[in-house]
Write a protein that binds this DNA or RNA. Structure first.
Length: 216
DNA sequence: CCTTGGATGTACT
DNA sequence: GTACATCCAAGGG
């Protein structure tokens, strides 16, 4: 399986991202994310994504307006918004819509279709099924960190690109509430491929029950 | 398979 | 101080 190395592929064009975020999210399922960080090629076929609606969406990092962290989301579509969270993880989005709208699609999971040996080296002891099963695992498989924030994924010679692929059949797309969010839990803005092992397990949001309130 | 708790830095109240 | 678009190890079934 996978794509032959050496074949020149044209990235998905910028206008693909200049549409309603829900449409972009759904259409990203099946697309192939390619990274050549550190001179090593990894390609991942996306199986799970989530839409974030920008300033109108209470769950979006853009809800409270622009900041140094989220500024990429307020820029043009077709760029990577990467953020650092939980003190140790990176997550990656693709910015959609016109500048100022700040909508984006979180890339939650996928299947490694090229560079399996590279990922295996980056993730010793991890089962192949889990290589990109979750947003922070996906960035780790790709070798993506904060230096990729703002990267243009439409650039022909870019080190981080999105390649077209066979779209996932309409009947194989599932949707439901987003994972780990505590607000706007009523909107089914998570999209995934039915019956795919690489899709991450659902977890409801809400801070986990607090431990004893006293310090030390 | 499930559940629980720890790790760890930054943004925000 | 608390939450956070998370992951991992350890323990039980």
């Amino acid at each position: 399986m996978g794509h032959r190395v050496g074949v020149v592929l044209t990235p998905v064009p910028r206008q693909f991202y200049d549409r309603a975020v829900l449409d972009v999210a759904r259409d990203l399922l099946g697309a192939v994310l390619e990274s050549s960080q550190g001179g090593e090629l990894v390609r991942i076929r996306l199986t799970e994504v989530e839409a974030y609606g920008g300033m109108a969406d209470p769950a979006s990092h853009a809800f409270r307006g622009p900041s140094p962290r989220n500024r990429t989301m307020f820029g043009p579509p077709g760029h990577a918004y990467v953020y650092f969270t939980y003190g140790m993880h990176f997550c990656m989005n693709l910015v959609t819509g016109a500048p100022g709208t700040a909508a984006a699609v979180l890339l939650r999971a996928g299947t490694v279709v090229d560079g399996v040996e590279v990922v295996a080296r980056r993730r010793p002891g991890i089962r192949p099924r889990d290589f990109a099963r979750g947003p922070a695992r996906l960035t780790r498989a790709l070798g993506v960190d904060l230096t990729a924030d703002g990267a243009d994924v439409c650039a022909a010679g870019g080190s981080l690109r999105v390649l077209p692929s066979v779209p996932v059949a309409e009947g194989a797309v599932r949707s439901g509430p987003r994972v780990g969010v505590t607000v706007a839990t009523d909107v089914p803005w998570r999209f995934w491929v039915a019956d795919d092992d690489s899709v991450s397990p659902y977890r409801a949001g809400g801070s986990r029950r607090r431990r004893g309130s006293t310090r030390v």
